[in-house]
Simulated scan of single mutants.
Amino acid sequence: MHRLATVPERRSACGRRHPLMVILTLTACATLVVGGDSVAAIRQWAARTSQAVLARLGAYRDPFTGRFTVPSERTFRRVLAGLDGDALDAAISGYVADVMRWAAPVPQIPDIPGPIEREQRRRTRRQIAHRAPDGLLPGAALDGKASRGARTAGDGRIFLVGTISHEHGVVLGQCQVADKRGEGPAARTLLSRLDVAGMVLTLDALHTTKATARLITEQLGGHYVLILKGNQPLARAAARALLSGPDAE
């Protein structure tokens, strides 16, 4: 089972202790809830966290005032800048995969009075209008995208290639690529880290290569749905000849 590694506590500028998990949790909530795209925005949102929530997170408690405190913006910046992004992503994605395989307990989200969220409505409609047939294999989509609001040290765009579950819509894994042209090798590196045996992987035409197809079927024990486009004449001709021959069925 994947677990986040135990990490030492960090000290803020004034010497107070703030566990790394407190900063990661507040950052995740600020990013998901309000779309904070800067450390300043994340810290401003975190500063409004209630005392009850900070207590549950294990935030530092000032012995003089008795109040739980939020790390300073400077501490947020130092901790987030020092993170190993690949290790953090592997831990989070590994936990998600464990939940999907029932190897870890499913997080219990309390029901909140009020209208249901848009994605909940969409999921309900899909289950009614497009009910999955029995015996359907689990599927995942692999694609690469440019990350909004993030830049490299040289002020370039950040490209990520990720794998997302068809059924649950959760990220099973992702990694950064040097640029759009390096997406193919990065995709194969990512797939090699994942447990995709028995899964159907859908990929766009950029990944329609022998290397990727053979990796999925021969080494990882998975299946693929790959796209052939007009700008791949040799591959299309080979596929047409194979699918129209005596063994077409």
Rank of each mutant, 00 (worst) to 15 (best):
F68I: 04
L26A: 02
P113G: 10
Q51L: 08
P8N: 06
T124S: 03
P233T: 11
F68C: 15
S50Y: 03
Y60M: 00
D247N: 12
T6P: 02
G154K: 09
R3A: 12
V161I: 15
T152L: 02
S147C: 10
T152E: 02
R122I: 06
H168L: 05
I112C: 09
N231R: 11
S93Q: 07
Y95K: 01
L4D: 01
T49G: 04
L160Q: 01
G184H: 02
V200K: 11
L57C: 06
A141I: 10
T217K: 05
D134C: 06
R10A: 06
P105G: 13
E183T: 05
V53K: 07
V79H: 02
G221W: 04
H166N: 01
A30D: 07
A81D: 15
Q127S: 09
L32A: 15
D247F: 11
L4P: 09
V99D: 08
L32V: 15
V99L: 04
G114V: 11
V79N: 00
P107F: 12
V96P: 01
D111E: 14
V161N: 12
V96R: 08
W102R: 13
V200S: 11
A213P: 06
R236G: 00
L142K: 01
R101F: 03
S165I: 01
R56T: 12
G82Q: 07
R3C: 09
A146F: 01
L32G: 12
I164Y: 06
D134N: 09
A140E: 12
A87D: 09
F159D: 02
D204S: 04
N231T: 11
A28E: 10
R78V: 05
L201H: 07
C29S: 10
G221L: 05
T75D: 00
P110W: 04
Y60A: 03
A211G: 07
S50E: 15
C29G: 06
P113N: 08
A47G: 04
D37L: 05
L80T: 09
A140F: 12
V34P: 00
P138I: 06
A104M: 12
Y95Q: 10
